[in-house]
């Protein structure tokens, strides 16, 4: 699994939320190629191919990261900061999907460069609708810069020619 293409990296420790998210995405046929990590450290290991993911092909970059904020080991905001600070990962769209209603989380999220910030609705139907719209928006409508090795190479190619 880990050396296949991944569309969505879901960073979530709450099993209920995982199930709900998968359920909503599956109804829209968006759930294939989804990979789940359960804490901030694992998320970073996965993205940077370290620790248990040292054998993973680093050019296989997810199209979207769904990031919870309250995570074990390393917090969601710190994970976000690390992703946006590294040129290998900074262009991957990150969507914070959180139950936090803190204005400071919201502002800090955008300040650290999150691509969008979504507060999980408490109501189940609303949650499902939100995940569905979020999935369609980011995976279908949005143009993502990288998905696999070939695309990544084209990105580098493009950079060079745009600088010349």
């Amino acid at each position: 699994m880990t050396d296949r293409e991944v569309n969505i990296l879901l960073v979530e420790d709450n099993q209920d939320d995982i199930e709900l998210t998968l359920h909503a995405l599956r109804r829209e046929n968006l759930a294939n190629k989804i990979f789940i990590v359960r804490d901030g450290e694992e998320a970073l290991d996965f993205l940077f191919c370290t620790g248990p993911y040292a054998q993973r092909a680093p050019e296989l970059i997810p199209r979207l990261i769904l990031l919870d904020l309250k995570l074990p080991k390393i917090s969601g905001l710190e994970v976000l900061q690390r992703i946006k600070a590294d040129p290998r990962t900074q262009s991957i769209p990150v969507v914070i999907l959180t139950s936090s209603r803190e204005e400071s989380d919201l502002v800090n999220g955008y300040r650290l460069g999150v691509n969008s910030y979504i507060q999980k609705p408490v109501d189940f139907d609303q949650f499902r609708d939100t995940v569905k719209k979020m999935g369609l928006y980011w995976l279908v409508i949005n143009q993502y810069p990288i998905s696999n090795g070939d695309k990544k190479a084209e990105v580098r190619h493009g950079e060079r020619s745009s600088n010349s």
């Binding site: 262009s91 691509n115 969008s116 949005n142 143009q143 810069p145 493009g158 745009s162």
Partner: peptide, 17 residues
């Protein structure tokens, strides 16, 4: 163009349509 897409993300675009 992928060049425009990736450049935009590097510059901090939130999304690209």
């Amino acid at each position: 163009s992928l060049r425009d897409i990736s450049r935009s993300y590097e510059l901090g675009a939130n999304c690209y349509l």
